[in-house]
Design a protein around this nucleic acid. Sequence first.
DNA 1: ATGATTCATGTAATCGATTTCATTTTGATT
DNA 2: AATCAAAATGAAATCGATTACATGAATCAT
Lengths: 330, 330
Amino acid sequence: MVTIQEVAKEAGVSVATVSRVLNHHTSVSAKTRAKVEDVIERLQYNPNMLGRNLRCAESRMLLVLVPSISNPFYSKIVQGIEDIARRNHYNTLLCTTDSDPDRENVYLDLLRNRMADGVISMDPAVDLASIRQLGDEYPVIQCCEYSETDQTPYVSIDNQTAAYKAVKHLLMMGHKRVSIINSDERFLYARLRQEGYLRALREFDIPVESRYIVHTDLHFESGHRAMKSLLALEERPTAVFAVSDTLAIGALRSIKEAELKVPHDIAVVGFDNIPFASMMNPSLTTVSQPMYEMGCEAARMLIKRISSPQERVDSIVMDYELIIRESTMG
Amino acid sequence: MVTIQEVAKEAGVSVATVSRVLNHHTSVSAKTRAKVEDVIERLQYNPNMLGRNLRCAESRMLLVLVPSISNPFYSKIVQGIEDIARRNHYNTLLCTTDSDPDRENVYLDLLRNRMADGVISMDPAVDLASIRQLGDEYPVIQCCEYSETDQTPYVSIDNQTAAYKAVKHLLMMGHKRVSIINSDERFLYARLRQEGYLRALREFDIPVESRYIVHTDLHFESGHRAMKSLLALEERPTAVFAVSDTLAIGALRSIKEAELKVPHDIAVVGFDNIPFASMMNPSLTTVSQPMYEMGCEAARMLIKRISSPQERVDSIVMDYELIIRESTMG
DNA sequence: ATGATTCATGTAATCGATTTCATTTTGATT
DNA sequence: AATCAAAATGAAATCGATTACATGAATCAT
């Protein structure tokens, strides 16, 4: 492996000069610069970042924690993060936690071990207490999911109102028996979206029925199963609000298997507007979050936090949009 | 930040001893070990991996190149890679290239800059010449896509036969006008799958018609558009083989918009068996690759290559399975 | 021509770990 | 108690870069 020393020797200069050339310092004569660059080219020298990073006490890596990359919701966000990161000469370390605190902790060690300069967490199952504590010592940003009580900066949308509007859309179409397929209420977004659901029902004077409220995880199969149980009810719902498109897609499948028609027999609303939502048959009404932009903002916030740790960064609440498609409008 | 020096001083030993404790060397007395571990705990010391890695001339990072993480096909493979990597104390650096050679090259610099110890490339658009060259100097494994001519180890399936079987399945059901929605023939998998398609037609004495062969990229919208143009043909096909589930899903959407029935009017076969395939309406017949296992194997091969560079690693061709669902069987 | 100033370059310390080699300590054997 | 091998520990070199500081050369104003 070619090192800076060999380049220096070959070019007949000191390593300091080579380093200056590498880092585009001004105080190198054009002649020397040319000579060094020539040798670099000829020897095919590539600087060892471990050396540089050790010396500069940075890794130029951003840690990104997602529950899973199978959920396309996250991939757009990650794209935004990556674009901003790359533009600022950071690389991203994308880690899937499967919402497992142990795995999560292994990854957070990368921060403690200086292999990453900061972290963006999108995992709702994150141990919020430990994130808060980590946030005291390291740059941490939360994306989508966050804690209401502590001061870790986050970027998110108004989940409560978004859910409220989605459910209101169903109620305006005359539905009286509206179900919610929710994920675990441990997660803030799940609680908020359920609040939105309840708020809409209240506004339309519709009594809350616990049999219409189901909890599960975010997999297709779970949505499938949840819907199946709802369909088995004596008075089955005529509309369903799923807190994630993946759940809604599973639900659609269940409804089809029961040989019922969407939206005629049952209307379905999802959440996230993943690319598949528009491809479903019927296509899925859903709440669209500005995923790419959320990723960008999260990355910007993190980089700002890293480069000026004393400056405060404000949380951001972004806009969303209810996208009405076939699954609610025949 | 707490360093090994501070731990050493606090514990009243040399840094060498602390290092030995960290690395579980045997020649440390139980008493000293306990004392040091105590201090480590008390000071909340976390070793700086940049220091260690510089010294050990390794980064313990595996670079994984995928065209995009929006395609769920890759996420299962990546899971396999990650599991094996973590088990061997490697972290993975997941990078999306968007099949852009420039971006790809930026990521390969991570290898040259010693921020990664090896790379698994899944990008079919990879510049094969540059990968081969890289393979001479660094540990490189190709996954799914590979080069027939050079010796970079790969893990893949028999794409030609898999495609052949998929198309044969359509022909056996009596279809005479079978179309293929393919991606770019620059890619080996695209060429092989097309060969399989041709082989099946030949076997059934069906003349090849170029209007039934379309090329595009892998996005939904492209499948959607491609299908639309096929439907506009005077004699439209009665069956379609799409070389990717994403294309097939776009095609399904097109067919639905044309108010035709699948499989009654047109049968559709996809490729990859992404999780969405079984959720579609109708559910999608497709070729299932052992994605998770392929990822595992690729990671094992890469790690082997890294730890014993002189030893040869053999390429692996894995099994696949044709999964027949509603989109071909009413 | 001289001293001050700027510019280009080099020397050597430094980042935080590991590891070789030398030295000290321990403990068993006689 | 003396001897010696084995075990435990420490001093210092090392990985490959950056950078503070020193130094020498060139430029400039007077």
